[in-house]
């Protein structure tokens, strides 16, 4: 529990609950990305955007705050650092669930959980390697960039590890592998590399 308290658990839970409320309120809203004349638009449901932003920010918030001390920690710290990753992904999925509970059953939402897990894992990886402030920005920017690619160059977009509304679903292995990689890296580095820590130090 003390580990969680030291890793912004309360802020993360508040954040995800807030995002879930917004996702439920605006569940029917989608932002169309339609930059190409001859390609179908790639809609970004508000649920997906909020869940991704929430996942990225939660990944940043759960960064260790006393890196030097945690590096001294034994295997137990590694376990905790690993455990936080699926917990963050689960909270991001909570946002999706809150939004999906409101929309009609035939709305295209089945592709969303896999995307959110992949992006949250990417967020955790970015936090481990680049630091907590860069990670959320990077997560959302990468997400938006992927959506633009899926809209403008669908042939390339099909190879991205992200699916799109009404598109071919992502193999279940992709989010699982992404989550496993992020978890393993977080455990190995106890949550953040020394280099990333040095990057953000005042």
């Amino acid at each position: 529990m003390r580990y969680l308290a030291a890793h912004g658990a309360r802020a993360v839970v508040l954040l995800c609950l807030g995002s879930a409320v917004f996702a439920a309120l605006g569940a029917r809203i989608a932002i169309p990305v339609d930059l190409a004349t001859f390609q179908p638009p790639r809609d970004i449901p508000l649920i997906e955007l909020l869940a991704t932003a929430c996942g990225g920010v939660a990944a940043g918030l759960t960064a260790p705050r006393m890196v030097e001390w945690e590096k001294l920690g034994t295997r137990r710290v590694a376990w905790w650092a690993a455990l936080v990753v699926p917990a963050v992904a689960a909270l991001a999925l909570l946002v999706v669930a809150a939004g999906v509970a409101v929309v009609a059953a035939d709305a295209p939402w089945h592709y969303m959980p896999a995307n959110v897990v992949v992006l949250t894992s990417a967020g955790v990886l970015a936090r481990v390697l680049l630091g907590p402030v860069t990670a959320p920005v990077l997560t959302v920017v990468v997400f938006l960039a992927c959506c633009v690619v899926q809209n403008t160059v669908p042939d390339v977009g099909a190879w991205l590890p992200l699916s799109r509304p009404n598109g071919a679903p992502l193999p279940i292995a992709v989010p699982l592998v992404a989550l496993a990689v992020a978890t393993a890296t977080a455990a190995r580095t106890r949550g953040m590399t020394t280099w990333a820590h040095a990057l953000g130090r005042d």
């Binding site: 802020a11 954040l15 955007l49 920010v57």
Partner: peptide
């Protein structure tokens, strides 16, 4: 918390 930067962008966008 500088971590929340992206969230602010999303909120103001909305």
């Amino acid at each position: 918390l500088p971590v929340l930067t992206v969230l602010v962008a999303v909120l103001v966008f909305l």
